[in-house]
Design a protein around this nucleic acid. Structure first.
Length: 700
DNA sequence: GTGCCTCGAGTTCA
DNA sequence: CTCGAGGCAC
């Protein structure tokens, strides 16, 4: 069967072949990663991988829960396997005030163009860690942590020991991914800490850390002794809808045997949401578990679907957070850090203080204005009070994560001197320049500044860039200190120059050195978008790098165009600046990068070491409107303007506001006016709303 | 010119 | 996670 070409396989053969590949590849991965004794060379493994992917592309319904394509990379010997979520796990937008909640409701109704009230559910936001659990034919197949939202850790064995998670469910859809929060009750947390202390182990600082630590035990038997609980509140992939409403879906999950939060209620107005918020706040101390706010969701699932997503958060839900816990402490000093773009960032060194169960020693001070007590527009923050070394300051953790300074106690101030923001880089001594209208001061030392150089190199090997296993910030710093790496190309000649010496260094051995060099070799071939991102061109992040890669498709074409481009004139500039999503600032930055001798040299040296993979433009699923420029006019009756736009863009169309020679399609609703006339005079194709909806339903 | 929305860049601790 | 800035629609 392994010899049958993919396009000749029957469905049954494909099913069997996927099962075989999964097993063979799993054994190869184990041998390679766990036992460090490969049974297959890379080319053979890649061939299997390609075959597996091709079969899955032809028979998407047959993709196995344990498919090799879902095993991202492979499990390190001491860690967890990775699982790619079939549907990404989202984060929620935040509301901090009553006003934010009223605005949320207004946004929802405006997007849907509804005058009447929208109904919402309100439920406590549990302070634990989110988990996605997949069931197939009613059986628990795997459980994964949120991770970065796309890829999480496989904690299946541990999840089976969590209260509120059934191992088997009845009357469930064929495929069901249940999402919810794993947490630890206060009583269980106290008892666990007492046991920890009796055993001479370190106690956990709070229930959330205890829950996270317990769920991430490598030995599931240890997890079994930790009293973890679970509330289901959402779902991912589904083979059939659970209900018509959020509330109904939650009740359905409860019927299947999942624990759901008893404080989940329906609210018919923002006013009712706020009342429920107060009610939950009132009960907070007696709930027996930690919560950090209240989550509101549009109840009608059809409306949720219409509202859809923004880039990382749904439009149909928001988390109303309780005020963050704060603590007062002494600001011992203000230090300056230098980032990869040269940005000078002030950091507050604090007398250690516990905030929300975590000891905080540092807090970001953002920039010069933040210390002065004003925002970017000069409006006062902290009522204009500035921050000085030696001050007593109030610390909180923004989003329960990033320590920040909320306020300063002037009555305890002893330091008579305003903080003087440096005018020179503290690392290299170059002038630090703050451009008019900008918030940050930057070191002008570029590559000759040791701090900038190191940060640029760290960026180069970061996860979204070259992502070299075993070469993180720490290792990079060491290589730079030893004088082994000064620019990116050096990474790829490291083995030849210092391979033997590395194996003798402290903390390194023959095996770890070999693994590192293997990882470096694996990245010698790199997709164009990753390379562009890795270069660290100002204003070009991950997504702009992808945009550029998709436009130029090959390194040769990209480089030639950038070298040919002159700032603000000529065809090459127009093409670059004309990319949707690229403006003057980014375009100028990229052109300057390629016209600077030192960076050009750095790039040439690097590229000589690499094989750069072309990038194909995105697949728009064969839609008829892909690549077309569309304009909507008049009153649409079946969808709102915003929905129509989101829909069209999802299919690869560009939506514009005005009719011009570039317009391909005008969609005219009721009472279309001047745009319709203009379109007719230009000979642009005009469609009614129904014709448009019929068109986008077709695929090529 | 104003007001979204998205992206880039910088940050903390376990 | 958050702020500031860039890009674009209105």
């Amino acid at each position: 069967m392994e010899d049958i070409p993919v396009d000749k396989l029957t469905k049954e053969e494909a099913r069997a072949e996927l099962a075989r590949l999964s097993g063979v590849m799993r054994r190869a991965e184990d041998a390679y990663y766990q036992q460090d004794a490969p049974v297959m060379d890379d080319a053979a493994y890649d061939a299997l991988k390609a075959r597996n992917l091709a079969i899955e592309a032809r028979f998407p319904a047959l993709v196995r829960a344990d498919s090799p394509s879902r095993r991202v990379g492979a499990a390190p010997a001491s860690g967890f396997g990775k699982i790619r979520h079939a549907v990404p796990m989202l984060s929620l937008g935040n509301a901090f005030s009553d006003e934010d909640v009223v605005e949320f409701d207004a946004r929802v109704r405006k997007f849907l163009s509804l005058e009447g009230p929208v109904h919402y559910t309100a439920e406590p936001k549990i302070d634990g860690l989110s988990l996605s659990i997949r069931y197939e034919s009613g059986a628990l197949v795997y459980a994964a942590t949120r991770g970065d939202g796309e890829v999480g850790e496989d904690v299946t064995a541990n999840a089976r020991h969590v209260r509120g998670i059934p191992h088997r469910i009845e009357h469930a859809p064929e495929i069901l991914e249940v999402r919810g929060e794993v947490y630890m009750e206060h009583a269980a947390f106290e008892a666990l800490n007492a046991r920890q202390q009796a055993a001479g182990e370190k106690p956990f600082s709070n229930p959330r850390n205890a829950a996270a630590g317990s769920l991430r035990q490598l030995d599931a038997e240890i997890t079994a002794t930790r009293p973890l609980a679970f509330f289901a509140y959402a779902w991912g992939a589904l083979s059939a809808p659970l209900a018509d409403t959020q509330k109904g879906a939650i009740e359905r999950l409860a019927d299947m045997g999942f624990a759901t939060n008893p404080l989940t209620v329906l609210c018919e107005s923002p006013k009712a949401l706020l009342a429920q918020y107060r009610e939950i706040e009132r009960q907070r101390a007696t709930l027996g578990y930690d919560i950090d706010g209240v989550v509101y969701k549009v109840n009608d699932l059809a409306l949720q679907a219409r509202l859809g997503m923004r880039s990382t958060t749904p439009r149909w839900a928001i988390a109303h957070k309780f005020p963050a816990e704060t603590a007062w402490t002494r600001l011992e000093a203000i230090d300056i850090q230098v980032g990869r773009t040269g940005a000078l960032s002030p950091v507050a060194r604090l007398h250690p203080v516990t905030v929300g169960g975590v000891v905080v020693r540092n807090a970001t001070l953002h920039n010069e204005d933040y210390i002065k007590g004003v925002d970017s527009k000069g409006a006062p923050i902290r009522e204009g009070r500035d921050i000085r070394e030696g001050d007593w300051v109030e610390v909180y953790r923004a989003g329960d994560v990033i320590p920040k300074i909320r306020d300063v106690d002037l009555s305890k101030r002893e330091n008579p001197h305003l903080y003087a923001f440096p005018t020179r880089c503290p690392v290299c001594g170059s002038a630090a320049v703050r451009e008019p209208g900008e918030a940050v001061a930057r070191c002008t030392g570029a590559f000759s500044c040791a701090a900038q150089r190191l940060e640029k190199l760290k960026h180069f090997v970061s996860r979204q860039a070259f992502d070299i296993d075993g070469l993180g910030a720490k290792q990079m710093q060491a290589f730079v200190e030893w004088g082994w790496v000064a620019d990116p190309a050096d990474i790829f000649t490291l083995r030849a120059r210092h391979g033997d010496a590395l194996a003798r260094r402290e903390g390194w051995g023959a095996t770890s050195a070999r693994n590192l060099f293997a990882a470096i070799e694996a990245r010698r071939t790199i997709p164009l978008n990753r390379l562009i991102f890795a270069l660290g061109i100002r204003h070009v992040g991950e997504s702009s790098a992808m945009l550029l890669a998709r436009t130029y498709q090959s390194w040769a074409a990209f480089q030639a165009a950038m070298i040919a481009a002159q700032p603000r004139e000529g065809a090459a500039w127009e093409e670059l600046n004309g990319i949707d999503g690229v403006g003057e600032v980014m375009a100028a930055s990229v052109v300057e990068f390629f016209h600077t001798a030192s960076t050009r040299q750095m790039v040439d040296n690097l590229v000589a070491q690499l094989t750069i993979e072309d990038v194909r433009p995105p697949d728009t699923g064969g839609s008829k409107v892909a690549g077309k420029t569309v304009v909507f006019t008049g009153t649409l009756s079946r969808v709102t303007r915003a929905e129509a736009k989101a829909q069209a863009e999802g299919l690869g169309a560009k939506v514009s506001g005005s009719v011009s020679g570039k317009t391909d399609i005008l969609v005219a609703g009721e009472k279309a006016g001047s745009k319709l006339k203009k379109a007719e005079s230009l000979g642009v194709q005009v469609l009614s709303e129904d014709e448009w909806l019929a068109l986008i339903a077709q695929t090529r």
